[in-house]
Design a protein around this nucleic acid. Structure first.
Lengths: 189, 189
DNA sequence: ACTATCTGCATCATCGATGTTGCAGTTAAT
DNA sequence: ATTAACTGCAACATCGATGATGCAGATAGT
């Protein structure tokens, strides 16, 4: 590895990654030129900080994944009661995924670090869901893998219509939909 | 408009569109060359049938959207009882979306025909959902727009893990999840 | 203050994808 | 059978994105 970056270089890396997220979210095929412009930086600087497009993508993904993992841990998914943990994790994930929707929403990105982070996230998720099932929050027959897929998809949709709503209420919507769906509930009048 | 195509030319158009779907599903940035190869056709033929990449994309989308709309109408969503209609529509859509996942899964595609078809599909969906709500299948407070988003997302996920399962059982899974979620149900022992 | 590092700018080389054209051989339609 | 349409092939032009380099000026770290 190279020696530590100077402070301004480190700052360049940051603004480039942030710009890349914004620009690529709008157009996945966007040019490095466009990214550089959005970052307020010369195109050559992008090339200096990242060997090639691929390297930039990987750095972007890694950065976003680290933040996602942190956001999940912050919610203490393994100590809080399942329902509380579900709400907290969801709210935190919504925050991070909203800010890094391109970097996290792209399957191609998972190949870079061989998906180590994703494996961890998935494991944490299934861990929580397993506990939720044992403690009677989830239906005993629920397929946890399907549940996980549905959960991720609901988060994606919640982001998609996050028109001004705060993460907390969106998280509540996601959790409620995941648990009860949209059907008429048996106990209702 | 040009005059009608000869039979072999029409066949070329078909195999190219089918190949485009396959290839682009695997790699959205795939080359016209790769598409031509997959279609068993020279690259120049692709250019002869479609003025440019954009035109090919639009034709692909239009073709897929037409099939989707047909599949929905076939299920008679406005005459069958809501629950039956929901199952039938879902199964049909799963079939078509499975075969044309790229063409239908791409938001960029909606801009081509100004989204006329999608508007129709969405309208049909909301129509069915409105009826489902009035007849007590859906919760009276359910936000139908959110419900529609969730429904589409569930279909997407069902396709994603369609490992050998038939459309009917997948449709049942989607409908059940949409209606009841994965939570423990109040009436259960 | 001194030095190594970083940046912007201008320039150049390269490469792959796109799209065009002409021609010879094949195939559909009447 | 004749004709018009279609195809494959080869060749060519173009274009935009990528990436490399050199240099002069600015900036961080000591």
């Amino acid at each position: 590895m190279g020696r530590a970056l100077r402070a301004d270089a480190e700052r360049s890396v940051r603004v480039i990654l942030e710009a890349a997220e914004r620009v690529l979210a709008a157009d996945p095929g966007a040019t490095l030129e466009q990214i550089a412009e959005a970052a307020g930086v010369a195109r050559t600087t992008v090339h200096r900080r990242f060997a090639n497009r691929q390297a930039l993508l990987e750095a972007l993904t890694e950065s976003a994944e680290r933040q996602l993992a942190e956001a999940i841990e912050e919610a203490r998914p393994d100590t809080a009661p399942p329902l509380v943990a579900l709400h907290r994790v969801t709210a935190n994930v919504l925050r991070v995924k909203g800010a890094w929707s391109f970097a996290l929403g792209h399957p191609a990105a998972q190949a870079c670090t061989t998906g180590t982070v994703w494996a961890g996230v998935n494991a944490r998720c299934l861990e929580l869901f397993g506990r939720a099932q044992r403690e009677g929050l989830f239906h005993p027959d629920a397929d946890l893998e399907w549940t996980r897929q549905v959960y991720y998809a609901l988060i994606g949709e919640a982001l998609h219509d996050a028109r001004g709503r705060d993460p907390e209420s969106l998280a509540a919507l996601v959790a409620d939909t995941l648990l009860h769906g949209v059907g008429q509930r048996p106990g209702a009048v």
